[in-house]
């Protein structure tokens, strides 16, 4: 029964992009063998509303260590859904379910408990969401929740995190003011600092600059380029220029399916799929 179902889906998939499926399950050629794999998504399907809405169809994808991977695609294609699968935030949504596997460092993500997984896989939201508490406590929130009490250690973490996101010089004298009294761009960097304070492996970002002005956006982009030395970053964006500017790999989604995944330069210069090409050239959005 289950098998039948799967086969059917594969047929669908084949009809969408036949040339890629024929050579492997992956919709890209496996030529990046020298990269270290952080996440591996295998035959992953995701459903909302008691399986009545299929949001992700048969996704196969690898996320590489210390690289920026951009998820692009038209609105509603499931970028955020896939992103939220990596830190299991989707499980907060009632009546959602999945099948298939996501491996984090070669282990099924469901073999971790959520607290453990989420302390290794941080998330930055579309809207800056600093907690209504002081800047210091915002950054120290994660480590404190993990049980770190040592004041000196906390101070060090807060300081380094704020320095890493370039916020320290701007707020060093006001660590006790409320995090929400900062500007939008500063708030978003505070949220990134909050994430970094956990020293995660991966940072998931869901359109982190869509609520910000160009200058604040530029700052965040520079920050992302800097951060990839230490962290693996997955970023959802609607802005193709942004994806081209900051990402190493690009995954293009449509209607819940992964259409194309490639090195960013390759993807934008020589898209292999007609749909990717149409999307890049702005034939639809």
């Amino acid at each position: 029964m289950l098998n039948l179902f799967k086969n059917k889906k594969k047929e669908n998939n084949t009809s969408l992009n036949n040339e890629m499926i024929s050579n492997d399950k992956l919709p890209y050629s496996k030529e990046y063998t020298n990269e270290q794999v952080m996440f591996e998504v295998k035959d992953f399907n995701f459903y909302y509303d008691k399986k009545s809405k299929l949001a992700l169809k048969d996704i196969n994808l690898e996320i590489f260590k210390n690289k920026v991977t951009a998820f692009i695609g038209p609105s509603g294609c499931g970028k955020s859904t896939l992103l939220r699968c990596f830190d299991r935030m989707n499980e907060l949504i009632q009546d959602s379910s999945y099948d298939g596997q996501i491996l984090y460092k070669n282990k099924e993500i469901h073999s971790f408990n959520t607290i453990e997984l989420r302390s290794k896989v941080g998330m930055v939201f579309q809207q800056p969401n600093p907690f209504p508490m002081s800047i210091y406590n915002n950054v120290a929130y994660g480590p404190k929740c993990q049980g770190l009490k040592d004041k000196k250690e906390l101070d060090k973490i807060v300081l380094n995190s704020l320095k890493d996101v370039g916020l320290y010089d701007e707020v060093s004298d006001r660590l006790n003011i409320s995090g929400s009294s900062l500007s939008g761009g500063q708030q978003q960097r505070l949220c990134i600092a909050r994430c970094i304070a956990m020293s995660p492996d991966v940072i998931l970002m869901d359109e982190p600059t869509s609520a910000l002005d160009p200058i604040a956006t530029q700052k965040i982009e520079e920050l992302i380029k800097k951060l990839k030395e230490k962290y693996t970053i997955i970023i959802v964006t609607h802005n193709m220029q942004q994806a081209a500017r900051i990402s190493d790999y690009t995954a293009f989604f449509m209607l819940g399916e992964l259409v194309e995944f490639n090195k960013t330069e390759e993807f934008f210069a020589r898209p292999k799929n007609k749909k990717s090409e149409d999307y890049i050239t702005g034939k639809f959005s």
Partner: peptide, 9 residues
Amino acid sequence: QGSLALGAS
């Protein structure tokens, strides 16, 4: 969500 995403219980 922000709190949960930071690994808070």
